Amino acid sequence: MSRESDVEAQQSHGSSACSQPHGSVTQSQGSSSQSQGISSSSTSTMPNSSQSSHSSSGTLSSLETVSTQELYSIPEDQEPEDQEPEEPTPAPWARLWALQDGFANLECVNDNYWFGRDKSCEYCFDEPLLKRTDKYRTYSKKHFRIFREVGPKNSYIAYIEDHSGNGTFVNTELVGKGKRRPLNNNSEIALSLSRNKVFVFFDLTVDDQSVYPKALRDEYIMSKTLGSGACGEVKLAFERKTCKKVAIKIISKRKFAIGSAREADPALNVETEIEILKKLNHPCIIKIKNFFDAEDYYIVLELMEGGELFDKVVGNKRLKEATCKLYFYQMLLAVQYLHENGIIHRDLKPENVLLSSQEEDCLIKITDFGHSKILGETSLMRTLCGTPTYLAPEVLVSVGTAGYNRAVDCWSLGVILFICLSGYPPFSEHRTQVSLKDQITSGKYNFIPEVWAEVSEKALDLVKKLLVVDPKARFTTEEALRHPWLQDEDMKRKFQDLLSEENESTALPQVL
């Protein structure tokens, strides 16, 4: 008996699950189920560990084997000379395990699969056993689809999209007709009724959600790893209520002995410091949205989908001078704002400069500016000194954290500008005749005249004003913003236009 009217009423009120309206889709043409990776026989039982391990490696599972009696060998002398080797079968990115008779397991190899009674669906509900069930008529011709799209860092995100009359449910929550939600590992998919569980979705590319604290899981769906560094790992996640993407940084307390840091400095109150950081608001710094204190720290951040500045300059790639100017102007505005709010970044580098898009002209935002507030000064500097390429001379020669101030950030900005303009770092371990530390503390950077011949004198002058060993003589952010190279009204107008595109209400910060 159909429950279409009941569920449609529920759909009209929406769902609290991570779902959002989605535009129309072009329906895929039908194809045989076997060619799409559906096993030839149905099963109602969950797999054992041996079955799972075989399939996850990209080899055929026991459900897909063919009797050897149906095959015969071709003698080598009868092999056609022009026969080309077969292409290897792509490894599946996800697996659906059937929970009921009449449904088959599915190895997801393609990027898009339609499910329903219509014969054009890649996964067609046409098993005779299924057709005899009382629920068969409640399934729509095109009930739902599972697909994946390219996300940040060229990774993939799996989604389920509801197109049914009676509802598609993920972990008992209604997706909603015309809406989608991301699928995470071990999600249970039910059709027409929330208790009519048909599939379990296994994402073969992500970790299980159960490793994360419950308070975090209640608000966010964790997904793929976006990156990792000395101070922690960053994962893509989704807000459950809105389906908006965020980035979540995970900082290990054990790695940084944060408990010991608190004992050594009783004034170090991470929760208080995070609340201060959350109040920071500038178009060129990453917004801190939320914070969870569990076995590790979880910092929920605004997501930038254009990648890191590092990706644009790695491998001796240089940027156009006009692009360097647009990016560097924004970096200076961001660091100036942090300094005005009493925050020294201490870890400025291309990896911590994020881009809003893949376009050459785009907004940038500074991230990882609050680590000293979370990890403690000593722990952070011990970590950073392991990779000193961007560290100021006074940091390398000081004991502990004494003896330096916000000028350290201006040195790091000078190193970043040098790399963007030239395509190579000013200080490098590859210069074996002088140690990296000695290069930095003496201010002897690697200047290649033929490379810098293409760079304007004004740009080079600003680099020199920032890479000054004496912090008292080094340019401040205010002085850098007043430098002739940055007195470019076309560049500032472009920045204002980019801000307006992102948010019509965002105004250009005042600069002296």
Results as ranks from 00 to 15, higher is better:
R3H: 07
E4R: 05
D6G: 09
E8M: 07
E8D: 10
A9K: 14
A9C: 10
A9N: 10
A9E: 15
A9G: 11
Q10D: 12
Q10E: 09
Q11D: 05
Q11R: 09
S12H: 05
S12A: 11
H13W: 10
H13P: 14
G14F: 11
G14I: 14
S15D: 08
S16F: 06
S16D: 05
A17K: 06
A17F: 05
C18N: 13
C18W: 09
S19R: 05
P21W: 07
H22L: 08
H22D: 12
G23T: 04
G23W: 05
S24G: 10
S24I: 01
V25Q: 13
V25I: 09
T26K: 07
T26C: 14
T26R: 14
S28K: 06
Q29F: 09
Q29Y: 07
Q29W: 09
G30T: 05
S31F: 10
S31V: 08
S32W: 11
S32E: 11
S33R: 06
S33P: 06
Q34D: 11
S35T: 11
S35G: 09
G37W: 09
I38C: 12
S39D: 06
S40N: 11
S40I: 08
S40G: 13
S41W: 10
S41E: 11
S42L: 10
S42Y: 09
S42K: 07
T43G: 04
T45G: 10
T45D: 08
T45M: 12
M46P: 10
N48V: 05
N48F: 10
N48A: 10
S49T: 13
S49L: 14
Q51T: 09
Q51Y: 14
S52Y: 05
S52I: 03
S53I: 15
H54S: 12
S56C: 06
S57E: 13
G58F: 12
G58M: 03
G58L: 13
T59E: 05
T59S: 08
L60V: 08
L60R: 02
S61K: 02
S61G: 01
E64M: 00
T65G: 04
T68M: 03
T68C: 03
Q69C: 01
E70R: 03
Y72I: 09
Y72F: 11
I74Q: 12
P75N: 04
P75R: 09
E76R: 10
E76W: 15
E76S: 15
D77H: 08
Q78D: 13
Q78S: 05
P80M: 14
P80V: 13
P80N: 15
E81H: 15
E81G: 11
E81F: 10
D82R: 07
E84P: 07
E84D: 13
E84I: 07
P85G: 15
P85I: 07
P85Y: 15
P85C: 13
P85H: 09
E86L: 06
E86V: 12
E86M: 10
P88H: 11
P88E: 04
P90A: 10
P90V: 08
A91W: 15
P92S: 15
W93Q: 03
A94L: 02
L96Q: 00
L96S: 03
W97E: 02
A98W: 03
A98V: 09
L99S: 12
Q100H: 08
D101T: 10
G102I: 14
G102P: 14
F103T: 04
F103Y: 06
F103K: 04
A104R: 09
N105L: 10
N105E: 13
L106G: 15
L106P: 05
C108P: 15
C108A: 15
C108D: 01
V109L: 12
V109R: 11
N110F: 14
N110W: 07
D111L: 14
D111H: 10
N112R: 11
N112I: 11
N112G: 11
N112S: 12
Y113P: 01
Y113H: 10
W114L: 08
F115W: 02
F115M: 11
G116L: 01
R117F: 00
R117A: 00
K119F: 12
K119V: 15
S120K: 04
S120Y: 10
S120I: 11
S120C: 10
C121F: 05
E122R: 14
E122A: 13
Y123P: 09
Y123D: 03
F125G: 04
F125R: 00
F125D: 03
D126G: 12
D126R: 07
E127M: 15
E127P: 13
L129M: 08
L130H: 05
K131L: 12
T133P: 05
T138I: 07
T138W: 05
Y139E: 00
Y139W: 05
Y139G: 02
Y139Q: 02
S140E: 01
S140N: 04
S140T: 07
K141Q: 05
K142I: 12
H143G: 02
H143R: 02
F144W: 01
F144P: 00
F144K: 03
R145W: 09
R145G: 13
F147G: 00
E149A: 07
G151E: 05
G151W: 11
G151P: 03
P152L: 14
N154T: 02
S155Q: 09
S155R: 05
Y156N: 10
I157M: 02
I157F: 06
I157G: 05
Y159V: 14
I160Y: 02
E161K: 14
D162Y: 08
S164T: 02
G165L: 15
N166C: 02
G167A: 04
G167H: 00
G167S: 00
T168I: 02
T168C: 00
T168D: 01
T168H: 10
F169D: 02
F169H: 00
F169A: 01
V170G: 00
N171A: 14
T172F: 14
T172W: 06
E173D: 12
L174C: 03
L174P: 06
L174D: 09
V175R: 02
V175K: 00
K177E: 06
K177P: 06
K177N: 14
G178H: 11
G178D: 06
R180W: 14
R181V: 03
R181P: 02
P182V: 01
L183P: 00
N184Q: 14
N185E: 04
N185C: 14
N186W: 06
N186K: 06
N186V: 06
S187P: 10
E188N: 08
E188F: 10
L191P: 03
S192C: 15
S192M: 02
L193T: 03
R195I: 11
N196I: 10
K197V: 02
V198Q: 15
F199V: 02
F201W: 15
D203L: 00
D203N: 08
T205G: 04
T205L: 06
V206F: 07
Q209M: 01
Q209S: 08
Q209N: 15
V211I: 13
V211C: 11
P213I: 15
P213G: 05
P213K: 06
A215K: 06
A215I: 12
A215W: 10
A215R: 05
A215Q: 02
L216R: 01
L216V: 06
R217W: 14
D218I: 08
D218P: 03
D218M: 03
D218L: 08
D218C: 04
D218H: 12
Y220N: 04
Y220R: 01
I221V: 08
S223V: 02
S223P: 02
T225F: 14
T225R: 08
L226H: 03
L226K: 14
L226A: 08
G227P: 00
S228G: 11
S228N: 14
G229S: 01
G229M: 01
C231P: 01
C231Q: 13
G232P: 00
G232T: 02
E233N: 11
E233A: 13
V234R: 00
K235I: 00
L236F: 13
L236A: 00
L236I: 15
L236K: 04
F238I: 02
E239Y: 07
R240N: 10
R240C: 10
R240G: 11
K241S: 07
K241A: 02
T242M: 02
C243E: 10
C243R: 03
K244C: 09
V246D: 04
V246H: 00
A247P: 00
I248V: 07
I248W: 01
K249I: 01
I250K: 13
I250R: 14
I251W: 03
S252C: 04
S252G: 09
K253P: 03
K253H: 02
R254G: 03
A257R: 07
A257S: 04
A257H: 01
A257N: 00
I258Y: 01
S260K: 13
S260E: 05
S260R: 15
A261S: 05
A261H: 00
R262T: 04
P266A: 09
P266Q: 10
L268P: 01
L268R: 13
L268T: 03
N269P: 12
V270F: 05
V270N: 15
V270Q: 15
E271N: 15
E271I: 08
T272Q: 07
T272F: 09
